[in-house]
Design a protein around this nucleic acid. Structure first.
Lengths: 134, 134
DNA sequence: CTTGCTATTGATAACGAATCTCATTAGCGG
DNA sequence: CCGCTAATGAGATTCGTTATCAATAGCAAG
């Protein structure tokens, strides 16, 4: 059996983590990379992808699919939640929905499905963007 | 001003529609194209993409994003619904969830969001695939 | 039926997001 | 300071999807 590789702390991963925390909306790997480069960082694109993927499955970041690309956002770790996202500015609000969680489990079980997971996202225009677009 | 182009009926579009109706799960554009070719059709890949896109926004097909690609499925037009999808075989069950619809609207309004839409999909293993994988 | 207009097709090129390759770099325990 | 190897990064590669454009074929009018 192969022991799992020991993780190392690099400034690149820290930079990605900080950049994520500094943004209040969802952002793509490419945009995050651009921002870091503009800020003077010499980080590579592949590394940004790797860091975001890791953060996502470690539970430190949320990800969602929008228009064919993956968007990421820092999140409060440990608890399952969903998002209310502004279509225009990307602003995201974390929302909890115990009712929805249970509904998903129930509906899956009712149809004989096991290992149920779910994708629940609400999109709209935030108050600010609603004003601007009117 | 430009009048909107007049739609024409072609056997290709009809073939795609029929192929969709003949499948009971979600399917990718590429797989649908393969099936049609194997069935003897000379339809082109680009045409399959175009037909699926059209069907989706005409409301004759549902689409969802899974693992970086778009999947399509024929659906009962006119009514809003969600899906319970098998991760293994793609089998899909249409589910209605008035409670979820209202929850989405309520949560959006509470945070000042307008024009709310939502993405709700439940994934799991169907009864059959659960047996097979055990 | 024939003609004319143009929507549609399809082979292929182009595109973009994401991943892979692999030589080089650098974390970190000893 | 050494040595091991995880991590990096530039570029190549994969893969889904869309754009290009000449050829085809609906469809309405004559």
């Amino acid at each position: 059996m192969s022991a799992k590789p020991v993780k190392r702390n690099t400034w690149q991963r820290e930079a990605v983590r900080e950049a994520l925390n500094g943004s209040d909306g969802f952002i793509s790997a490419q945009n995050l990379h651009s921002e870091l480069r503009l800020a003077g960082s010499a980080i590579g694109l592949a590394t940004v992808y790797r860091a975001l993927t890791d953060l996502a499955l470690e539970g430190e970041a949320d990800s969602l699919q929008a228009e064919g690309e993956s968007l990421y956002r820092a999140c409060t770790p440990g608890q399952h939640h969903h998002h209310l996202i502004c279509r225009t500015c990307g602003l995201a609000v974390e929302i909890e929905a115990d009712a929805v969680e249970q509904w998903a489990q129930t509906i899956a079980a009712k149809h004989g499905f096991t290992q149920a997971t779910h994708v629940v996202d609400v999109f709209g225009l935030c108050a600010n963007c609603t004003l601007i677009s009117s």
